[in-house]
């Protein structure tokens, strides 16, 4: 490999200790090691319960790793998400690390267009430029213009997912995490998402994702990373 990885995981271990349920310990991940190069898309592959979503959340800093390192290249530096301060993770998320989760977290009263444009404004784009980018993505993802000024709380599941996708692609993040980005989408919109992913790869974005749709997975993934439930992995 010529380019050094944008994202490099080593020895990742994660378990949940459920204090509310008598201290039950649930092992989720052990010894996960994985590199993703610039322009590469790696699909996490495995049955449900194998820790795919948990791994994405660990990379995003949403879950806390008990073992291992999560190295991400950020503006010429390398940040270990597993050891970084809250301020550092927030900066990493603002400029480098995008995440399209399965569900949109709705903010009361904020119109769809502003939900999408917000990350672009946060990296320093003018309000006008951020709005232009948001509009372009909303159009490409076939959100009718009459919905742009409405808060997405009352949108359908598919519409909310597309708002989430638009928000994830409005900034050209060098590293992008995708958790089932096409689960609730029709064929046309699935094709749009495939195009967006191809464009991101062409820009050099490193992508790590979960794609249940085999057709989409085959079109975007350069390779699969096999995951097993921890009991089988032992």
């Amino acid at each position: 490999m010529t380019a050094s990885p944008s994202l490099s995981l080593a020895g990742i271990g994660k378990q949940f200790t459920l204090h509310v349920q008598g201290g039950v310990v649930l092992p989720v991940l052990a010894g996960v090691a994985l590199d993703v190069a610039p322009g590469e898309c790696v699909a996490l592959h495995g049955p449900s319960g194998s820790g795919k979503s948990s791994l994405l959340r660990l990379v995003y800093g949403n879950y806390r790793a008990q073992a291992g390192s999560i190295a991400i290249r950020h503006r010429g530096q390398t940040i270990d998400v597993a050891a970084a301060s809250a301020q550092t993770i927030l900066k990493l998320r603002r400029y480098t690390l995008g995440y399209v989760s399965q569900f949109l977290r709705v903010i009361p009263r904020v119109p769809a267009i502003d939900v999408v444009a917000e990350p672009a404004r946060a990296v320093g784009m003018t309000a006008a430029e951020a709005e232009r980018r948001a509009e372009r993505l909303l159009s490409r993802l076939r959100i009718p213009e009459r919905l742009w000024s409405l808060p997405p709380a009352t949108f359908s599941g598919g519409e909310q997912q597309r708002i989430n996708l638009a928000r994830g692609f409005v900034v050209d993040y060098p590293v992008l995490l995708l958790d089932e980005p096409t689960a609730a989408l029709d064929a046309d919109n699935r094709r749009t998402v495939v195009s967006l992913i191809h464009e991101a790869k062409a820009r050099g974005t490193a992508l790590l994702g979960i794609f249940h749709d085999a057709e989409v997975r085959d079109q975007v993934a350069d390779r699969l990373f096999a995951m097993r439930p921890p009991s089988m992995a032992a």
């Binding site: 949940f16 200790t17 459920l18 509310v20 959340r57 800093g61 949403n62 879950y63 806390r64």
Partner: peptide, 21 residues
């Protein structure tokens, strides 16, 4: 203490887990 979404989505301390639950 920590990043807001981490504390709420992956609480470590028994009391935080109780609070979130």
């Amino acid at each position: 203490e920590g990043l807001t979404d981490q504390v709420l989505d992956d609480p470590q301390h028994p009391y935080t887990q109780l609070l979130v639950a």
